[in-house]
């Protein structure tokens, strides 16, 4: 365990970045972005993880201190939810744009979608 599990999240991040940089297909680029998104979300969850931790729900009659000592950190989970929602909005926008691009250019190949100088 230890740092290796974090490295896994970073490895996933690198895979996503590779997809965005190396692929020329619009859909594959979008998938690369999604993988980056998942990697960051996973990192967030890992940060809040505690081995053998209980769910961060305080039930009635439970001592808050004792609960806090055993539960996983709830804050990153809230952040992950927000991040997932943002990712959903982004995905919808990206896919909508990809459809429009296809209508205009008749291709998903970024090499042919280059009317601008960049």
């Amino acid at each position: 365990m230890g740092i290796a599990i974090y490295m896994l999240a970073f490895a996933l991040l690198v895979v996503g970045i590779y997809g965005v940089i190396a692929k020329r297909n619009v859909i594959k680029i979008i998938l690369g972005i999604l993988i980056i998104d998942y990697a960051v979300n996973m990192l967030l969850v890992l940060v809040g993880y505690r081995r053998d931790g209980v769910a961060p729900i305080l039930s009635e009659g439970q001592d808050a201190k004792a609960w806090a000592a055993t539960s996983v950190d709830p804050l990153p989970q809230a952040m992950v939810l927000t991040s997932i929602v943002i990712g959903l909005g982004l995905t919808a926008l990206m896919v909508a744009m990809a459809i429009r691009l296809y209508q205009k250019y008749g291709t998903f190949d970024m090499n042919e979608i280059r009317k601008l100088k960049g």
Binding site: M97, K115, L116
Partner: peptide
Amino acid sequence: AEELEAAFKYLILGTVGSA
């Protein structure tokens, strides 16, 4: 066409930056 292309590039780079 140009606007969509520019927006798509902006979106991809911007999203990587945000990540």
